[in-house]
Amino acid sequence: EESVKIVRLVKNKEPLGATIRRDEHSGAVVVARIMRGGAADRSGLVHVGDELREVNGIAVLHKRPDEISQILAQSQGSITLKIIPATQE
């Protein structure tokens, strides 16, 4: 059973501070990098390897990473992410 986590981040004009990529094996959209000091890093709630399912209620599974980045870039104020946390080894 996948544990889905709802994360709310507050982002002003600054970038979210995370990059995403598509996992070639599973097809999932995952967090590739977290930039120090960005909104994602400061929240402490988003981690490399987390699978991104939704951004502000928009399912991202069938979107290209550049489309998802665009949605994230255009979002201001509160951003709600639905993520499946990376499995902690």
Rank of each mutant, 00 (worst) to 15 (best):
L9M: 09
K82R: 06
P65G: 07
E24L: 10
G44K: 08
D66T: 09
G49L: 00
V60G: 03
G38C: 06
H47L: 02
V30G: 01
H62C: 07
V29W: 15
H25C: 11
L9W: 06
A18I: 15
R42F: 04
L81F: 07
L52I: 15
A32R: 09
R8E: 12
R64G: 13
G38E: 05
A32L: 03
R53K: 14
A59N: 15
I68C: 02
I58C: 10
E24N: 11
S75F: 09
V48K: 06
K13C: 09
G77Y: 07
L61F: 12
I58M: 12
L45A: 12
T19D: 15
L72H: 02
H25T: 13
L52K: 01
A39D: 03
P65W: 07
I68M: 03
E67W: 06
G37N: 09
S43I: 01
A39N: 07
I68L: 07
A18P: 00
Q70T: 13
G38L: 06
A86G: 13
Q88K: 13
Q76E: 15
R33G: 15
G27I: 00
P85D: 04
I71R: 05
N12S: 12
L16I: 13
I6A: 06
G37D: 08
G37F: 04
I58N: 09
N12M: 11
V4E: 09
R42T: 08
S75K: 11
A40H: 01
V55W: 02
V31L: 07
A59H: 10
I6M: 03
V60T: 10
D23N: 08
I20H: 01
K13A: 11
T19N: 06
E51T: 07
I58T: 11
V60L: 13
G49W: 02
I84Q: 08
R8V: 10
A32F: 05
A28T: 10
S69D: 15
R33N: 14
V31R: 01
I34F: 03
G17R: 14
R36S: 12
K13M: 11
D41Y: 09
A59T: 13
V10S: 11
L61N: 13
V29I: 13
L61V: 12
L72A: 06
D50G: 01
V48Y: 02
R53G: 02
Q76P: 10
D41W: 12
H25V: 14
V31N: 01
R33V: 05
I58Y: 07
R36Q: 13
D41L: 02
A32N: 12
L9R: 03
L16T: 04
P65Q: 12
I20A: 03
A39M: 11
G49S: 02
K63H: 07
I79W: 09
S78M: 13
N56L: 00
G77N: 10
I20P: 00
K5W: 00
A18D: 00
R33Q: 14
R8M: 07
R21E: 15
L61Y: 15
R64T: 15
V60P: 02
R53T: 11
S26C: 04
I34R: 01
D23T: 06
Q88A: 12
V4G: 10
V46Q: 02
G49V: 00
V30T: 13
A86K: 13
S78R: 10
G37E: 04
K63G: 02
A28D: 04
A18H: 00
G77D: 14
V55M: 03
G37M: 04
L52R: 00
L9T: 05
R53E: 06
R8F: 04
I71Y: 08
D50R: 00
Q88R: 13
E89D: 13
S43N: 05
L81V: 04
A28V: 07
T87Y: 10
P65V: 15
Q88P: 12
G38D: 02
E67I: 05
M35G: 06
H47K: 10
